[in-house]
Design a binder for these strands. Structure first.
Lengths: 323, 323
DNA sequence: TTGAAAGCGGTACCAT
DNA sequence: ATGGTACCGCTTTCAA
């Protein structure tokens, strides 16, 4: 079913069909109506590829998200969508379910579908290279693993320092961290935590690892407190883990923040919803999304990319109730 | 920058370039390498449109979501993405921010970008008609407003009946509902509520309207209880409103479920997270997503669409702690 | 107002 | 192993 079929059925040339469909002038009203009618009867739809080929507009970017149901990634995705819409871009979203095979498969197929890829990728850089073959890419939060690709960094150093300082000022000196358990190396957030502790003249009581889920946080806090009952404050890799910890604390009968102070990382809206509201080192996810899209735009336009400093979003301490 | 530029630069024909890029056989290894190198130097990327034009594969659907940050829609989106990925489809996501203006603008531009649209649309059908001009569309949860389009319904009748029956059996007879405030007409969920109440021989104490937000639910419950202090149970339009109500109840010093029973609708994961966990009439969002994509597939294949009964997902009472 | 022809940027088929 | 040519389905330019 092509434009020619419609033309034939309506007894006109295909240019006339094109005119009718695209609301161009220079066409008799009755002809137009007749063409429109036959097109409708035939159930004709113009090929988006043929159209795109000739009108060189419309940009679409692929957005890679590890798990859309994780509220943090939901916020990032929403922010990226918003920034893209302002430019009239289309965003093709892929949820890789945190599986590298899915990442691979998606990247393999993505190259012929979008003009750029943005988002979270856990594959090593050389493998990404092979898969996307020059497709412009903007990776988010690669921590120390972003060498060759343009990445948007999350700079939580000052925020974490402020958080630890806040705990220290409140008299806490038995402080622990719940880091994530995904990769074998400690996270960069842990690094910030360690230097912040040192700057306050404090020694971490312990650093446990938690799955990035409510249950993960709950479980990890229970274990932590079992081993170190004297801990009075915890800093966590992210808000999800922190909220799990909050729940564990409540079930253990520890009152937050009186018996145990909890500080998360991310600044999720979800944190305002729990009781007590979560104190956290907050990220501006909308800025993160905007920067990501901005960087993609620069790559596509081949104008200079954002500098190392510009390509970062700073996180800052947001005091609520849990610390 | 086209395939011809690369061919010229490498001193070969464009077919040879095509072979090199697509890993076809029948090409000298050294030639291939030379072509690949020049392509890389030139920063050449094949046009996805030209490619799509000749290889007629790859389907992409537009997914319209009113507000991705609303956890319910996040779940639906994730479910649709999952179902689409199983078929190898690409999903272009549009967050309309609950504004009809955005809906219009998106639909207008979408027709030349995707093979089908699915999701939530609040525009009236005749306006949708004009905008998408025959693009296959699957609307979700149009309640009673879906006449001509294929829609996936949410059938909560039995679930709501079970919920009200549960309340009645627990001795509640002062029951109210917090409906949504979006449209002027009462929701179909309200209709189910009303018939369920009647079936139990009960008379609703009141039906208030709430914005679909935590604050909306909180506010609405306060007003409701101010006017009708004798209410002992509420059924809400959705879980978000219910969670807001939960918060209001706690702040008013009403213990849930002892002083006030609360039942929501949707079955959000979020509801397991609040304290007490929310009893709700739960929807299988994954099934909803799967059905939506399935229906889109049938429309594209021009095979028969799902029947009225098949195109529905049933909601059922999920007892947790709040009632 | 309408139609013929020339692309848009690729891939596939058939020679060479 | 490589190149010539047709063609994918549509829009734009130019004549008629």
């Amino acid at each position: 079913m092509t434009i020619d079929d419609v033309a034939r059925a309506a007894g006109v040339s295909r240019q006339t069909v094109s005119r009718a469909l695209n609301d161009k002038g220079e066409i008799d009203a009755s002809t137009k109506q007749r063409v429109l009618d036959t097109a409708h009867e035939l159930g004709y739809r113009p090929s988006r590829f043929a159209r795109g080929l000739v009108r060189q507009d419309s940009i679409s970017v692929g957005l890679m998200i590890p798990d859309l149901l994780n509220p943090f990634f939901t916020e990032v995705a929403a922010a990226a969508l918003e920034a893209a819409r302002k430019r009239g871009w289309h965003v093709v979203v892929y949820d890789t379910g945190d599986r590298v095979e899915e990442e691979r498969g998606t990247l393999e197929v993505i190259a012929s579908q979008v003009d750029a890829v943005v988002g979270y990728l856990s594959l090593p850089e050389d493998e990404i290279d092979k898969l996307i073959r020059g497709l412009p890419a903007v990776l988010i939060d690669r921590e120390h693993r972003a060498e060759r690709y343009n990445a948007i960094r999350i700079d939580g150093e000052a925020g974490v320092h402020a958080a630890i300082r806040h705990l220290a000022d409140a008299g806490h000196h038995r402080i622990a961290m719940l880091d994530h358990a995904a990769r074998s190396e400690p996270s960069i957030r842990h690094h910030w935590f360690a230097t912040a502790m040192a700057a306050c003249g404090l020694e971490p009581v312990a650093v446990s690892r938690a799955d990035q889920s409510l249950e993960g946080g709950e479980h990890a806090l229970r274990e932590l407190l079992a081993e170190h009952p004297d801990v009075t404050a915890v800093f966590t890799f992210n808000d999800i883990i922190a909220i799990g910890a909050l729940r564990a604390a409540r079930r253990l009968g520890r009152r937050v923040p009186r018996d145990l102070a909890v500080i998360g990382f991310d600044g999720l809206q979800l944190g305002t919803l729990v009781e007590p509201a979560l104190t956290t080192v907050a990220l501006d996810t909308r800025e993160l999304g905007a920067l990501t899209i901005e960087q993609a735009g620069r790559l596509l336009a081949r104008s200079g990319p954002l500098s190392h400093d510009e390509a970062a979003v700073k996180a800052e301490l947001r005091l609520r109730e849990s610390a």
